[in-house]
Amino acid sequence: MSAIDFEDVSIALGGRRILSGVSFSIEQGHFVGVLGPNGAGKTTLFRTILGLLTATSGKISVLGSPPARGNAAIGYIPQWRHTAAQLNFTGFELLLSAYAGNRWGLPIASQQDRKAVEAALERVGGRELAGRALTELSGGERQRLFIAQALVGEPKLLLFDEPLISLDPAHQRSIVELVRDISRERNIAVLFSAHEVNPLLGAVDEVLYLGQGKAAIGTVDEVVNERVLSALYDTRVHVIRTEGRIFVVAEGGEVDDHLHDHAVTGHATMQGR
């Protein structure tokens, strides 16, 4: 059984086509980078897998069943966060409130709930972090906490929506490696969206590129090349590899957001770190 199966799936939002006739399949245990510029439909894809949006046509299977809201087997990190960051609560309280937060009644955590949260925190090395107020955590520390939150309750599939945003390269790398290790040791599929491929290089098993309502899936070498990306974006795309980094530059437009400036100034190849 694959973790996720899309067969000829189309998704529309407010009358606009976001995905049209997309098919792909993700094996259990695979760490998959979901890539594409802003607005490509990464968040929309995740929300569809979660059962928050319904596809207009096609067949979707998530862990062997159709998508259903409230699927306890999925661990999720949303891209947008309204409130959590400004709160005076400790991380531990936040995780406890979320664990089994869909049950009715008083928010009193059982010993078992606490153990589950502690185990997840342990895995990300976040026991100490969780005792501090969220307002006192750095972006990287907070993201570690959210990863722990997604792990509580032994999920079989993880959906992480842009967890690298606003982190520096060193922290990006440590988050990616942490997620890769978790995916391997528990044999669970992870969809990890990012708008740049470089932080994921060497860690992901596959990449799923979204663009123009279409999708391309495969290993980094199979997908991040001029032939596949030019076909995906309907425009001539240059892929420049240098010093172990990849730059995707589209003619007359951007593909990887991050590269937009360099593409315009034509200095893409000078940016290798």
Partner: peptide, 13 residues
């Protein structure tokens, strides 16, 4: 849960 993390709470049903 919904007050602290509305996006996640929605996904959790």
């Amino acid at each position: 849960f919904a007050s602290l993390q509305p996006e996640l709470a929605e996904a959790k049903g």
